[in-house]
Structures are given as structure tokens and as C-alpha cells.
Design a protein around this nucleic acid. Structure first.
Lengths: 206, 206
DNA sequence: GCGGCCTTGATAACAGTGTTATATCACCGT
DNA sequence: ACGGTGATATAACACTGTTATCAAGGCCGC
């Protein structure tokens, strides 16, 4: 017979709910990764998490709320993946590697990526608030672009460059994920393209 | 009382079915454009087309077959849009305008575009055959790239260039459609990017 | 011309979905 | 201790894609 948990500032009820919430997201994330968005049903998630459908509703307000949590989780994972890219000697090379990590993350978690940049679940579209949060994950790229421009002594609009790099990287990986266009030497193409964008959208410092 | 239709090589049954099939696709396309993929239900399409759900099944084998027809229709419309781009004096400018037409077509028919490059309908994923057909729509871009390289006296791999232009264009418009990144001067950025890609992935003819 | 086959097409039923109403129950504050 | 309030589980509702059932009709061989 385990001793009762020590009393905390938060009530037991609240603590249990928090753990339940985490468990639901965890179960739903695994279900998404392994079986795709199609398999994400409220009943299935509830059952796997050891609760009832109503549990999802009190915790997330509905399926859309649960999917929104997964959306945030996906972007959180991507941000973590980008943060963990080891620093390169060359600042431009760092931008290249961020792109590679981005595309690798998308390819390794295609269902998550589809949820983050597509709309694979009929009823759900991310709110502006969570999209803003998602965009924030790409600040890592923006800062890397700034560093690369500094190092090369070039000036221009780093946001524009980061935007084009993001769009190019997304386009490359997305066309591949949907079987429309794939290239064996994608990393080579992306590297050359990165250099070209940095070149074309900057000027030498006066 | 209208006179009976003159007998043709094809049976009346077959002709009626063909018209029914076209009507179903037409109705489904309108439904897709106006209400999005979520509203595409077999019952709704059947009702709007004046038939029963079984009509969809005998004609398309199921919802997936109907959606595949819409997929083909979407790429057909995009190909038409690209073909109708008026010829520019400058071959490079022609490539730029193809990109603009591509993105405009995607933005004007976001639900169709989502169906073409995403997976907004749970049960459906395009077969390799129809994807190959879809890729063929982009040959227009490939030929324009070839022409631009000829005109500029440059050589390189036109397929690689067309691929990167497609990916960049898709990425730009797709991030915008999903509210992740939008730029007021997108056309300007795309133009500069197009020139940069043509420059970076070609060399002057020997 | 005409009868048998057989595909078509409409209706209804089935399994699944998200959502909501209902009823029970545990917990918290007074 | 107890009333009230919120959460939970069960069941029902409206909807989905799909399939079975079955009547009707056209087509082909005679």
C-alpha cells in the first residue's frame, strides 16, 4: 500500500488532470506518427490513454483542441531539432545545415509535418495564435542568416532571405513527401541554392 | 415529345453514363471550390448531381475514385493556366511569368491546390500513375527553362533548374496559403530568385 | 420478336466518426 | 458534515463511407 502523496500547493485533482493531459498528447502523438492523421479518432485516443471520450472533451474541448496541441508539439519538436544542430565553423554552412535538419525532420515525421504545414484533419485549422508560435520556431534560421551576413560582410534584408530559404526548403521536402518530385542529390541542390540566395539578396557592405 | 436520339456507335447507356460521370465531376469540383474538401461527401455529391450514392460507386468505385478524378481535373486546370500564359519577349521573363501564373492559380483555387499537393481527404492518396500525369503538367516549365538557357547561351541541367523553381514556387505559395509566411512583394522575390537559380545552376557555354 | 442474364440504380442497413445530453460520482469549500 | 460544483462514463444523435438487398431496365442470343 503506497503512502499517500505529500500534499502540494496544487490539488490532487489538478495534478492528475495535468498528467492525464500529457498522457493524452503523448498517446495521440504516437498514434499520429505510427498510423497517420486518419487514425486519430477521439475514441481511439481516449481508449489508448485509459479514459473516455469525455475526457478528451473536458481536457481539450474537442478534437480540434487536441489536434492543436499536436500542432504545437510538432513545431516544438522541429524547433528542438534545429536548436540541436551543432555549430559549424562557417556561418553560411550553418544555414545550410539548418536546412538539412529541417528537411530531415520533416521526412522522418511526415505525418507530423503534414499536420504542421497542411490540413490533413478535416475540422482543424490552426488559429493565428498558434501559427505565430509556429513561425517563432523559424527565428533560429533568421539568426543564422544574420550571422552569415555578418561574417561575409554583406547587408540586406535577413527576414527576406530567411523567408526564401524556408520556402525553398519546404517546397523541396514537400514535393518529395507527396511523390511529385524527388532528387537524389537534394542536399547538394539545397546547398547551392542557399549560397545563391545569400548572394542574390545581399550586397557587399559599403 | 422529343425525337429519340440518333443511334450511334456507343450505346445509349454508355452515353448517358458518360454525361452522368461528367456531371458528377462538375458538381464535385464546384463543391470542392466553394466549400472545401471537408464538404465533399458522397451523399452530397450524389444528391447535387441528381443520382444516388450508388451512382458514385458504379461510376468511380468509391469516394477515392471520385477524388482521383478531381485530382486529375485540378492538374489539368493548372496545366491549362500555364499554357495560356502569353509569350514574353524575354525567355527568362517567360519563366518568371510561369511562376507567377502557377502561384496565382494555386491562390485562386486553394482547395484544389490542397488536393493536388496535400492530402486533405483522409482516405485518398494519389496513385503513382496519376502523380506521373500531374508531373507532366510541369513540362511546360521545363521547356521554358530550356528556352531561357538557350537564349542566354548557358548550359546545365534544365531538369534540376525546373525542379528547384517548382519547389521554390510551391514553397512560397504554400506557406502563404497556410498562414505561415506571406510577403507583399512575393512576385519581386520570386523574380530575383528565378534569376538567381538560373545563374547559379548554369555555366556559360564553352 | 422475345426471353434470360446481368449490369445499373435506389433504399436501407452497418460500422465508424465527432459531438452532446444525461446521470453518476468524487472532491472542495463552507 | 454537507451542499454544490465540476469531472467522468454511458448512451444517444447526426453524420460519414461502404455494402447488402432488391427491383427495374437494357443487351445479347435465339
Amino acid at each position: 500500500m503506497p503512502p499517500p502523496a505529500a500534499p502540494t500547493a496544487r490539488s490532487n485533482r489538478a495534478r492528475e488532470n495535468e498528467s492525464l493531459r500529457e498522457r493524452i498528447v503523448e498517446v495521440a502523438a504516437r498514434l499520429l506518427v505510427e498510423a497517420g492523421p486518419h487514425a486519430l479518432s477521439v475514441r481511439r485516443v481516449a481508449q489508448d490513454a485509459g479514459t473516455s471520450t469525455q475526457g478528451i472533451y473536458t481536457e481539450f474541448g474537442g478534437k480540434a483542441g487536441l489536434v492543436e496541441a499536436l500542432y504545437r508539439e510538432g513545431w516544438r519538436r522541429l524547433r528542438t531539432a534545429l536548436e540541436r544542430v551543432p555549430a559549424a565553423d562557417d556561418a553560411v554552412e550553418q544555414v545550410v545545415r539548418l536546412g538539412e535538419a529541417y528537411r530531415r525532420c520533416a521526412r522522418e515525421n511526415p505525418h507530423f509535418y503534414a499536420l504542421m504545414v497542411g490540413e490533413p484533419i478535416p475540422g482543424f485549422a490552426p488559429s493565428e495564435a498558434v501559427r505565430r508560435n509556429a513561425r517563432a520556431s523559424m527565428r533560429i534560421l533568421l539568426e543564422a542568416v544574420r550571422a552569415a551576413m555578418d561574417e561575409r560582410g554583406r547587408h540586406g534584408d535577413p527576414e527576406r532571405i530567411a523567408h526564401l530559404l524556408w520556402a525553398s526548403g519546404h517546397g523541396l521536402v514537400d514535393l518529395g513527401l507527396h511523390g511529385l518530385a524527388r532528387a537524389e542529390d537534394e542536399d547538394d541542390r539545397a546547398r547551392t541554392l542557399t549560397h545563391a540566395i545569400l548572394e542574390a539578396f545581399t550586397e557587399v557592405d559599403p
